[in-house]
C-alpha cells in the first residue's frame, strides 16, 4: 500500500489539487490528512468538501488546531492574522462542515504507525516539533515505530535507536528513504498549503508499506491564483505574500 500523507492544507485549493494529482500519478492508493484543513486560505469550503469526499472512499483525517478553532469559533492563543482568518473561516463554513471538523479524531493508530497533527506525547497541547528535544519527547511517548505528524510546516525526519537521543535528517530531494526497522521514526510533514521552509513548493510525503520507504515530495502549484483569492476575501495580505517565499 502506498499512503500519501497531506498536512496543513489551510484552505489552499490549488496546492491541494496539485498534490492530489501528483500523488495519483505516483500510484498512491490511500490518503491520510494530518490536520489543519482550514485556516489562512480562502477555500475552506472546497477543501472540507474534497476531504469528506476522499473519506467516503477510505481516506483518513485527523483534527488540527485550526480545524478545532474554526469549528468552535474559539481562537484563544492565535496570533492576529490567524485569528482574522479563522473568524472569516468560521463564517464561511456551514454548521454541517463545522460539525464534521469538530468530530475529527485527535489521533489514529494503524499497524506500527500513529498519525497525529502536532506530536504524540500530548496531542491536545498542540506543541511544535522544532528540534531533537521536542522530537525525543514525542518518540518516547509512543510504542509505534513510525509517527506521522505535521503542524510546523517544515519537513523533518527524526530517527532514534532505543538507548540514544534522536537524530535529525533534513530531507534532500525525493529519494525514497528506508525506515530501518531497528529504529523509531518521526516523520514531520511539510505543509501542503503554506510551506515555511523557504521553499514555496507544496509539500507532502508518500510512504510505501511494502518497501518500508518514505519519500518527501514537493509540488508546484498556481500560487498567483491562491494569492488573488486571499486578497479578494480581504484576508490579511501577509497570508498571500508568504506563499511566494515559503515563509
Amino acid at each position: 500500500m502506498r499512503i500519501a500523507f497531506l498536512s496543513d492544507i489551510h484552505g489552499n485549493r490549488e496546492a491541494l489539487d496539485a498534490c492530489l494529482a501528483h500523488a495519483e500519478r505516483r500510484k498512491a492508493d490511500r490518503l491520510v490528512f494530518l490536520g489543519d484543513l482550514v485556516g489562512y486560505g480562502a477555500d475552506p469550503v472546497y477543501v472540507v468538501d474534497k476531504v469528506r469526499e476522499a473519506m467516503a472512499k477510505g481516506a483518513l483525517s485527523i483534527l488540527g488546531n485550526h480545524d478545532e478553532a474554526a469549528a468552535r469559533g474559539v481562537t484563544t492563543g492565535m496570533n492576529d492574522y490567524a485569528r482574522a482568518a479563522l473568524e472569516w473561516t468560521f463564517r464561511e463554513l456551514d454548521a454541517d462542515s463545522r460539525r464534521f471538523l469538530a468530530d475529527l479524531p485527535m489521533k489514529i493508530e494503524e499497524d506500527d504507525r500513529i498519525y497525529v497533527h502536532s506530536e504524540a506525547s500530548a496531542p491536545l497541547s498542540w506543541a511544535y516539533i522544532t528540534d531533537v528535544a521536542t522530537a525525543e519527547r514525542s518518540l518516547r511517548s509512543t510504542n509505534h515505530r513510525i509517527t506521522f505528524c505535521g503542524h510546523v510546516h517544515k519537513p523533518q525526519l527524526y530517527h532514534m535507536q532505543p538507548q540514544r537521543p534522536p537524530l535529525l535528517f533534513v530531507p534532500q530531494g525525493s529519494t525514497p528513504i528506508p525506515l530501518m526497522a531497528s529504529r523509531k521514526w518521526l516523520a514531520v510533514q511539510g505543509a501542503v498549503g503554506q510551506p515555511r521552509d523557504h521553499n514555496p513548493l507544496a509539500a507532502y510525503t508518500i510512504y510505501d508499506t511494502d518497501t518500508n520507504e518514505l519519500s518527501f515530495q514537493r509540488v508546484s502549484y498556481d500560487i498567483d491564483a491562491t494569492a488573488q483569492k486571499i486578497h479578494a476575501a480581504n484576508l490579511p495580505q501577509i497570508l498571500a505574500a508568504r506563499l511566494f517565499i515559503g515563509r
Binding site: 530517527h159 537524530l167 535528517f169
Partner: peptide, 10 residues
C-alpha cells in the same frame, strides 16, 4: 548515501 540519513552521525 548523500540523500539518506547518516545513521553513523551519532
Amino acid at each position: 548515501h548523500l540523500f539518506l540519513p547518516d545513521l553513523l552521525e551519532e
